[in-house]
């Protein structure tokens, strides 16, 4: 069984995100990059299948320029076998659908049996690509999964259904799975893995290699355009309630219910 993993590099969660030019977007000059944390669950799930000899090969798919290779190498160092990086001038300015078309074409070309994705990328939090890829491939999809049991030619995936309930979905392969926190405990790269990763291959594929229609990807095909970037308003300061404990508790519950509307 061949397993694919979609991997995106995102600004590290402790990075300071700044918008200096409203037209240019986030200033990434001082940003440290990391593998999207949800993609780490996806990668770990694939590597566990390889450890258990259920998967013969783990292939990373990344849509991104040369700078993305550092985090692809991180994925290879953790144990993936090789990687496909999708990069082409014709793909510049693609929206989520354009990126999904490219990833779907790559997954199809590689013939993977399971494509693991993170449930969303923590940079723009759109959570669109995994569902789109599945739809484009005509494969079943199970999204935001926190447990998987593997069968023969199928799997059963569990996902939170809200309000503490869970939903268990059985799906035949090939399938797209998007991974949520709790699915597993991602490993980190060993130093030996890093040395071995240098010898692993990262193939760079363009529009032609993937058989994509150039009119369906890139800026021209994008249905979403970014018009303006701004930083979120500063968070209002916290409020401290004072007085006797019973009063304060009552007031706190009232505020949580009526103002914050969380209970």
């Amino acid at each position: 069984m061949k397993v694919g993993v979609c991997l995106k590099q995102v600004p590290a969660t402790d990075s300071r995100i700044q918008v200096k030019d409203p037209a240019a977007g986030v200033d990434t000059s001082d940003v440290k990059w990391e593998i999207n944390p949800y993609d780490e669950f996806a990668l770990e799930e694939a590597l566990k299948l390889k450890d258990d000899k259920k998967a013969s090969e783990v292939v990373i798919f990344t849509f991104g320029d040369k700078a993305a290779e550092a985090k692809i190498r991180d994925g290879l160092a953790r144990g993936a076998d090789r990687a496909v990086r999708i990069d082409d001038p014709a793909l510049q300015g693609s929206d989520a659908l354009g990126i999904a078309r490219a990833l779907a074409a790559a997954a199809k070309k590689e013939g993977v049996d399971i494509l693991f994705c993170g449930k969303q990328a923590v940079d723009d939090d759109q959570a669109q690509v995994p569902a789109m890829v599945a739809e484009l491939l005509g494969w079943p999809q199970v999204l935001a999964v926190d447990h998987i049991d593997y069968g023969d030619g199928s799997l059963r995936a569990r996902r939170p259904a809200g309000g503490g309930a869970t939903e268990v979905v059985e799906a035949p392969l090939p399938v797209v799975i998007s991974c949520d926190k709790g699915l597993n405990e991602p490993r980190y790269a060993s130093l030996r893995g890093i040395m071995m990763a240098k010898k692993k291959k990262i193939a760079v594929l363009g529009v032609g290699d993937l058989g994509l229609d150039p009119s369906q990807v890139g800026a021209a095909a994008a249905m979403v355009a970014e018009s303006n970037w701004s930083e979120p308003p500063p968070r209002p300061p916290g409020r401290i309630l004072e007085g006797d404990t019973p009063q304060v508790v009552a007031e706190l519950v009232r505020l949580l219910r009526e103002e914050a509307k969380v209970i």
Binding site: A70, D74, A77, Y188, A189, L191, G193
Partner: peptide, 17 residues
Amino acid sequence: SEDQQALIDAARAAAEA
């Protein structure tokens, strides 16, 4: 270098874990 940074990150992660 990029390779050295990867080693540094891996060493830190291993030591912390």
